[in-house]
Amino acid sequence: MIEIQINGKTCTCEPGEFLLKVAARNGIYIPTLCHHEGVGEQGCCRLCLAEVVERGRSRIVVSCVFPVEKPIEVYTDSERVRENRAVVLMLLKERAPESEEIARLCEEYQAIDGSRFKALDNEKCIMCGLCARACQSLGTGAIATVGRGTGKKVSTPYDEPSKDCVGCLSCARICPTGAIPYKQDEKERRIWDRSFTLVRCESCGEIIGTREELLLAAERGGREPDTLCASCRQKQMADVLAHTYGLE
């Protein structure tokens, strides 16, 4: 067990725990974009900066991938952090000028002026790769990062509709900048150039997912595809129990 100070507050953690996690556990908020519980750390947006002071020496670290190994002093909102973050946000904004979330963060944390750079056209993506990871772990691996360097992007193979995609929206939901477009109406969902028929709860009519997505979940779970939404399913279960125990 290690004791560290974050903004003057004493916090304890296991050696090797990431700083961001320790801060969060202690109710100290550090802004992030590319961090998401459960898909592993990307360490790519650089928004989660913190200042670490160790034996009188101060440095800026990327808190989501910074393992705490020694007793340190941490500042999440020092002058130095604010200055660095203002630069990072400016760069993110030039990269993804269309993202509302980034514009909001720029406002909130007073990003510096970036007009000397040429912003990308019509871009919202910061290439964090969360979507591809989410697709791999929750979905089917229909999308991945394509290419390298400045031309890198997220796409389906050959930029064509992917037969692996089940339209589950894992990618669009996890994206921190709202960069993955999709459309949905009463009957259909369109994403990655494909349309999927929506299935509704038999009891309350709530949308429960695409047919392909439910089939996949059923196959993985070795059961029949869901026909009810989560809350109706719970209710049904409760009714069954009540009936079994004669509590009606």
């Binding site: 691996g141 990062t145 394509v146 389906t156 692996d164």
Partner: peptide, 13 residues
Amino acid sequence: GCPVSALYSMATF
């Protein structure tokens, strides 16, 4: 037994 996207990603990298 891996997604085509994983190989496509490598091939373009």
